[in-house]
Every structure is written in C-alpha cells, then in structure tokens.
Design a protein around this nucleic acid. Structure first.
Lengths: 133, 133
DNA sequence: GGAAGTACACACTTCAAGGTGCGTAAGGCA
DNA sequence: TGCCTTACGCACCTTGAAGTGTGTACTTCC
C-alpha cells in the first residue's frame, strides 16, 4: 500500500474492479487466493521465513507437488520471495513480501474461523441431515 | 457465539483444532470456505436476503448447478437459511444466519483484497515472467 | 563406493469438479 | 391450448486438478 502513489490509487478507484463480474481480473485473483493450501502456506510464513522442508512438515498432508506448485504461484503473484542458498544440500527459504503480509491478517482470520466454528458447523450439519432424513 | 456456553467454549479450547493437521476436521471446514463461490455468495447476502435469481444475476458466470450446490452446502453448514414461499412461480429466499454473519467480515475482506491488489499482483507477474524468460 | 539429504522436475494416471442440456411442477396469461 | 417463469434435479461428459512414483545434482558421511 505504501508503495502505491496517490495517482495510482485514484486510477485503481476509477477502474473499479468488481469480482462479481466473471471477466473481471479480480475474479481470478479471488479464485487463486481462495485456496486451502494458499491460506495454510501464508499463515505458516507468519513468523518469519521458512524452508521448504519446514513448510512440508508444518502443513501436514500436502504433497510436494502441490506445495511446490503453490509456492511457485505465490512467488509469481508477488506474495512471497524464494531465496536459494547454494549450501551443501541446497537450501531454499520462503518469506512473505509486503504484499503477502497485507493478505496475512485475512488468511489468519479464515484459518481461525475454521478452527473456532467447527463445532457449530457440525451441529448445523447434524440438524440438516436429521431434518432431511 | 452467544449460543455457546462457557463449558462448550472451554471444551473447544481443550480440543484445540489445528488446520495444519491433515486429519483435523477444521481442515475440511477451511477447504469448504476457501472457495470462490462461497465468498461471492456470502458477500452477496451482505445487504439482506436475496432470491435465487438475484444471486445468479449478481454473481456473473456462475452456473445454476454450482450456485445450487454452493447454496445447499452453505445451508447444511448452517451459514445461511433457505426459505421457500409457495407463490405462483415458487420463490426462494436465502439469508445469512448469525454463523454466516460471523464469517462475512472475513469474506468481504478477501473479496476487497482481490479487487484492490490486482494491479500489484499483475506487476509482480510481469516481473516474474520477464525474469524467467 | 554406496547411502543419505534437499528441493525439486517430469511423466503418468486417476478422480472428481464442474459445464451442458433436458425435464419438471404449478399456476398465469394470451 | 400452449407457452412463460422460477428454482431447481438429474444424467452425461469433458477437462483439469491433484496423487504417485521415479529421476537428478551435489556433496558429505560412513
């Protein structure tokens, strides 16, 4: 945000992207960040840079293919940086960019919502299934 | 939340759901709400109940199958209510439940993030593609 | 001189998400 | 009489997402 000039901000407002429109590019961005692995990866980078192996250990159940793919996409979208250290076995660190950090609170909120409301969702499901049985 | 007793809250804290764990049910909830259509539907219900046709018009590009499916799942999960009015052609209204409203701020934030940061994402993509070319 | 660890790439395959098209009920209208 | 609307259900089919398994480069350790 701080990297955006007032002119750029005005321009952005003028164009008025709207994710409700199918062809709007913001729809694509919304689609990309509306992803289980994206949110888990971003939140995992909350407390500073992490290595590839750290992430794959922390985010249980992710295949290395999906992790690599998710990381590449996030890097391309400017949400995180990839730093290769040519050590003995090569070492790769991933860290959030300012843009990634701007999305972090939202992602954290989603993850926390899921964790804290699961029982209410469960209760609702039981009620629904019972009623429609 | 108000529907939750202190005992239930304590229990929830004791169990400590963690979306990082693959088998944790909160992972499933996270997966379900990490969905383009879910966020668009919830935000569309921001300003009060909407009819099925309202939603399909507002959310451009959604197929009726996906819209119906999304609405059913959200109803089952207790995020919204479905009210059928047996009028001349049947009329169906969808409205947020308190649980759905608790998720609304997050969903709104996601949609707004996508709309307001798209140009930064684009710039990052151009930079990435140029560098790797 | 193998084995092991890191961070992948790539090919193959499967499975399910999602699009499309057709059918429906129940009246209102021309 | 027959067509219109609303809000779907259902079956079919395509396509793409994602899992699995194997290969690799480089060095160090045993």
């Amino acid at each position: 945000m701080a990297t955006r000039t007032a002119a750029q901000r005005r321009e952005a407002e003028r164009v008025a992207y709207d994710a409700y429109l199918a062809a709007c590019p913001s729809r694509q961005v919304l689609d990309r960040i509306s992803d289980k692995w994206v949110s888990l990866v971003l939140v995992a980078l909350d407390k500073g840079p992490q290595r590839y192996s750290d992430l794959s250990r922390k985010i249980a159940g992710v295949s290395q293919k999906m992790l690599t793919q998710t990381l590449r996409t996030l890097e391309r979208d400017g949400l995180l940086t990839r730093t290769v250290t040519p050590a003995v076995p090569v070492r790769v660190d991933y860290a959030l960019t300012p843009l990634g950090e701007s999305l972090l609170p939202v992602m954290r909120a989603i993850k926390e919502w899921a964790e804290s409301h699961i029982e209410e969702v469960w209760a609702a499901q039981r009620r629904y299934d019972k009623a429609s049985a």
